[in-house]
Amino acid sequence: MEDFLTQLTSKYNFWAYIVLMMVGLYAMIAKGNLIKKLIGLSIFQTAIMLFYVAIGSKAGATIPILRDHTLKGVIDFVEYINPLPHVLMLTAIVVSVATLGVALALVLRVYDVHQTLEEDEILEKIKNP
């Protein structure tokens, strides 16, 4: 039990991302509306971004922009948080936005064809046209 509590307190960032990710996954599987599925997908991807950004944190460090006084002297890596996850997530955010844009375009076309966005109604229409 105590072990569990230390896990919970020292690694709460991972718990947060897992819970968020599962919310997104549930929405993707269980919701019938296509837009809600896409919202679920966005939550899912955002959870992964949260996870990555949390990797970058360091206790007692500041944002990875070098301060004026360190530019000339020695740079201590403990002073700045890890820039790499931020770089990676900038890329992932752009990718997820692009995916969402394409998905919304497809949803528009789906609506034009089937006149509804509810999955079960679409399936019904496909079966009995």
Binding site: S10, K11, Y12, N13, F14, A54, I55, G56, S57, K58, A59, G60, A61, F77, V78, I81, N82, P83, L84, P85
Partner: peptide, 16 residues
Amino acid sequence: FPSWGDVQSPASLHLS
């Protein structure tokens, strides 16, 4: 996994 804000975790040592 290393705990939150760990300065000595591999992720904050090698590349970064």
